[in-house]
Amino acid sequence: MAILVTLKSPIAAIGREVLDFTQHLGSLFLFFMWGFVLIFQPPFQFDKFRQQVYFIGMKSVFVICLTGAFTGMVLGLQGYYALVRYGSTAALGSAVALSLVREMGPVLTAIMIIARAGSSMTAEIGIMRISEQIDALRTMDINPMRFLVSPRIAAALICFPLLTALFDVVGLYGGYLSGSALLGLNPAFYFARAQSSVEMSDIIGGFIKSIAFAVVVVTVCCFQGYYTHTRAEFGAKGVSISTTSAVVISCVLVLVTDYVLTTFLL
């Protein structure tokens, strides 16, 4: 009897975990769909949308430029020393451009936006939840999903690809800076190889990734904030834990999604 219990309970625990995970995934998906559909419910919330584009997009420009430049520079540096062994430093342009456009651009942009905007999204919505502001919206017959989540989803869907493009371009010039300006590679080679190796399908793939990351990040971050009150911890503690888990979960999911999408896009 005792053996049966010890045998049963870990399996049951695994089963419970799997069920919990599946349920969580389902509720995340429904949360996103619900928020997404409400974007199109008139009257459109241009003001809030604009505010969020400003917050997610404009305020991230500097940090994206910075990280993009240094990512490109380090790619140029590493790529140069790796390629110089084979005497094919001319391929630096394509190495930098392809790794930026396909992988580094979308992924690092997403992770930077998580750090900059995603965490504060969770904290802001979480605080609204614990200070009853979301309940207040409901008493005013304002749909909090539409009011809070939809503009963020719409803005993220716009901002992620644009910031990714910015990251790519800045990174490309960063690679040029370290490869050509510092290490003396012919700039014409660099850009010619970058141009000839990157194809439209790579760029489209990069944008598909960045849009997928936008969905993942904004859903996880808004969800964590929106359901802060269902945590065991209350108040400020709950918000801080929500924020932490939003950042961790969305970073992990971005990398997982990246792998899955790469297998499809290659």
């Binding site: 451009a97 456009v101 493009a165 790519d168 371009v169 490309l172 141009q195 990157v198 760029i203």
Partner: peptide, 10 residues
């Protein structure tokens, strides 16, 4: 930037 990527690189 999107334009640069699609027109020049793509």
């Amino acid at each position: 930037c999107v334009g640069y990527l699609t027109l020049r690189l793509g």
